[in-house]
Design a protein around this nucleic acid. Structure first.
Length: 566
DNA sequence: ATAGGGTTAG
């Protein structure tokens, strides 16, 4: 009789589909005492922990009544917690399990490492690592892959790399974990390197690995590898290459994004047009590409098409379009977007408000920018930076610096590299040499921000404009990064303002070595020589230009294209 | 029973 119940209940649990059914089975299990048997009991808990997160409470209520839960049941409970929004519960259970004397097995570790990675708790993660070593599970593929994932999520790439290098045999998931780790920590070139290693080892990538490496190629603007990966996709028969059935929007979007970021807008567009499916992200990617390359009218045309195709633009769409307006100084277009955002509530987000503000600041409508700025729910470093740069760009150097001082009074906001670009350019516009020095030094001393070549460029600009050419030259010669053409250009600009032909002549040699990709510095150089009557110099520079295939570019300006926005 | 994924402002 009992055996009969047992088998019947077990098979009901197998085919059970809904939570309601499960509760009925649970009731029968209690009445028939089948609840005492470990296998049906485990299946009962498994069902709860594998379904909706809210059913975890139900599992918990069963769990607390079990006298000696098996490790399987502990694992099941920990897994349930690890898949919730608050995965810390998994760590609590893991701790409790060990305090009660249960020893975790190789199934336990992935469930407990996932929450560590999610909440970035490397401390507990390391404890789990120790436990893995003590229990001798370090060779388990799942446990070690989870460990690497935990380390790279917690930004400890070295520990991840160490584990990865210790084992010579990884399957595609292990490789993918390392590749994603590099991508997510802004080390795209290493992601590409590891991907190539994986190919050399003869491990075939799957779609996830491919997506990751495409992101890396986009990041590095590595079109050569990107194309190669695209070929590989066709070889492996992934994505939309064949049937519509097997099309993968994510993969296709990653390909699109790779071409777009690498500047192959035409290829990107053709690919976009031929994609069998397009979601909001795909549209955003294409719109963002046009925006980034200053092709505002194409971006807006696509925006119109997107709405026509029945898709709702989201934050990312708005952010791209607004930044395009900001970049081109397209105020009325930006105003139109502002109105659209208000009307459709599509920008019910601080980030969109900040972006609207940035657009006003950059296009020179300082008042509107201020109005939005003061009404912002949360003023983050980007908001402050936008205001500072906007003010500096439009000749309000003093106000920009006041803004920066005010920002520093807010302890929750920490300036970054970009903030300092705004600050230094403000000093340059206002002609504040000492203040410029002060900020240039404090970015490293106070905030630990190592100046990049752009910052050196600003500083050289400040000094050169003020006529302190010797100091400027000294800075260029002692800077720890190899000065690029922009840095030399700033110095040369100072030579022009202050008629220093000798220094210009010295710079000429440095510049020709760098083979500039534009005609700007040559023209500057020629002007300096011409002004001083050094006609030989003028001729030399002209020959140099011709030799490098440059002609003086004509002046350019931007006008606002008329487009219907709302 | 267990591990890895795309767009977004300055």
């Amino acid at each position: 009789m009992k055996k009969h119940y047992y088998n019947k209940i077990l098979s009901s649990l197998e085919i059970c589909k809904t939570f309601k059914e499960l509760k009925q089975i649970h009731g029968i299990m209690i009445i028939t005492s089948v609840i005492k048997y470990i296998i049906p009991l485990s299946k009962l808990i498994d069902f709860c922990t594998n379904s909706e997160p809210q059913n975890l409470d139900y599992a918990e209520s069963i769990f607390v009544r079990i006298h000696r839960p098996s490790v399987y049941i502990w694992n099941s409970m920990i897994k349930g917690h690890s898949n919730t929004k608050n995965p810390i519960g998994a760590l609590v259970m893991y701790k409790e399990m060990q305090q009660l004397g249960y020893s975790p097995d190789h199934f336990t570790f992935p469930f407990v490492l996932k929450p560590c990675a999610a909440i970035l708790d490397i401390r507990v993660g390391k404890c789990v690592h120790n436990r893995i070593l003590k229990t001798g599970f370090e060779a388990d593929l799942y446990a070690s892959t989870s460990l690497i994932h935990m380390y790279v999520c917690c930004v400890d790439l070295e520990s991840g790399e160490k584990l990865f290098d210790e084992s010579p045999k990884w399957n595609v998931v292990g490789w993918a974990t390392m590749i994603a780790g590099y991508v997510n920590n802004d080390r795209a070139s290493e992601a590409i390197r590891v991907f190539k290693e994986m190919e050399c080892q003869g491990v075939d990538p799957n779609e996830i690995t491919i997506v990751n490496v495409l992101v890396a190629c986009a990041h590095c603007r590595d079109l050569v590898t990107g194309r190669w990966v695209h070929d590989r996709i066709r070889q492996l028969g992934f994505g939309s290459g064949r049937l519509n059935l097997s099309s993968n929007v994510i993969l296709d979007t990653a390909i699109l994004e790779m071409y777009a970021k690498c500047g192959s807008l035409k290829v990107a567009r053709t690919f976009f047009d031929e994609m069998p499916q397009r979601n909001v992200v795909a549209w955003n990617s294409m719109i963002g590409a046009y925006s980034q390359y200053g092709r505002t009218s194409e971006a807006f045309r696509l925006f119109v098409d997107m709405r026509f195709s029945g898709l709702e633009p989201d934050e990312a769409t708005m952010l791209s379009l607004l930044s395009a307006c900001a970049k081109l100084g397209a105020l009325s277009l930006g105003q139109g977007l502002h109105a659209y955002v208000e009307k459709t509530n599509s920008g019910d987000h601080v980030s969109v408000d900040t972006s609207v503000m940035d657009m006003y600041a950059k296009t020179g409508d300082t008042q509107s920018a201020f109005r939005i700025f003061s009404g912002l729910q949360r003023k983050d470093v980007k908001a402050w930076t936008s205001m500072i740069i906007g003010l500096a760009m439009h000749g309000h150097g003093k106000e920009a610096l006041n803004m920066f001082n005010e920002m520093q009074r807010d302890e929750s906001v920490i300036p970054d590299h970009i903030t300092y670009l705004g600050v230094l350019s403000a000093c340059s516009h206002a002609g504040f040499v000492d203040e410029g020095y002060k900020h240039f030094n404090s970015m490293r001393d106070v905030y630990g921000l190592v100046p990049m070549e752009e910052h050196y460029c600003c500083m050289v600009d400040i000094l050169s404009r003020a006529g302190k050419l010797t100091e400027a030259e000294c800075l260029v010669k002692t800077m720890p990064i190899k000065p690029n053409i922009a840095v030399w250009g700033s110095l040369l600009n100072g030579c022009e303002i202050h008629d220093n032909v000798d220094l210009a002549e010295q710079i000429e040699n440095q510049i020709t070595e760098l083979k500039p990709q534009g005609s700007g510095v040559y023209v500057l150089l020629a002007n300096i020589y011409a002004k001083a009557g050094r006609w030989q110099g003028v001729k030399r520079v002209r020959d140099l230009m011709r030799h490098n295939g440059f002609r003086k570019t004509h002046g350019w300006s931007s006008i606002e294209p008329k487009l219907l926005v709302s």
